[in-house]
Design a binder for these strands. Structure first.
Lengths: 132, 132
DNA sequence: CGGGATCCGTGCAGATACTG
DNA sequence: CAGTATCTGCACGGATCCCG
């Protein structure tokens, strides 16, 4: 969306603003499924059906959609093998691995704070509805 | 919904699986708006209306909803000042700051790869519809 | 001013079917 | 097996109203 034809040259400065940048990231580059796909791909080259199986919960439409979006953003590389049973493989690009590193960090944070989160939820669960 | 009432004790082991964990993160803890709010809060203590002004694009409902969810997850701390014009302030908790660090990293990655992303989009934009 | 509740529209996401 | 197109729904998100 930052691209588009905004027509405002001064808008380039606004891109540096956290809000605008973050919006760009989390609504297009790093949406929920994309991040999940990045984690699933890891260092490997995986087929479409393998990804679908690994993510299980995702529909084939969402997978295709996100894979294409990620390919468009240069996060994954799509390789089509011209064989009779079509074989299409995906793997992270260099930048894709870079993003993956940050996602890994976020996963690690969650792992370390999982108990805190659950504790907070538990406390909130009995504090919120009653309000002391 | 990793939580729910799965009823399977063995499921605890599955939580360690990247997929399940990541799902938990990106669908509840670190959704699009939550990440945006985290970036907006930063080190400061901000009022509800300040946040709404800073994020501008968000509706009061979404802000309230996400703020409450983040409070439930122990990411933000909500302080209500019992004054005549109600004054409610929010600030990141310790764990909240930890998550913020990872979000910052992701923002930094985007900043560094912005040109790559745009280039990839540009290339894809003319390669995809025509297929060479 | 902060926030809950409600109503309602939009758009995302699932299922299905067809192509190559 | 991989991908696209279409149709539908349902949930998410916005606007409004009212309460504290």
């Amino acid at each position: 969306m930052v691209t588009a034809q905004a027509g405002s040259p001064a808008a380039q400065d606004d891109i540096m603003r956290a809000g605008t940048l973050a919006r760009e990231i989390f609504s297009d580059v790093a949406n929920k499924w994309a991040l999940l796909i990045i984690e699933t791909l890891g260092d490997e080259t995986r087929r479409f059906s393998e990804l679908r199986d690994a993510l299980e919960g995702i529909s084939h439409k969402m997978l295709t959609q996100n894979l294409r979006m990620m390919e468009r953003n240069g996060l994954v590389e799509r390789t089509v093998h011209p064989v009779v049973p079509p074989r299409v493989e995906y793997r992270l690009t260099g930048p894709g691995h870079g993003l993956r590193a940050t996602v890994d960090l976020m996963c690690e944070w969650t792992r370390q704070n999982m108990d805190h989160i659950e504790a907070a939820r538990d406390e909130f669960d009995e504090t919120s509805p009653r309000r002391g």
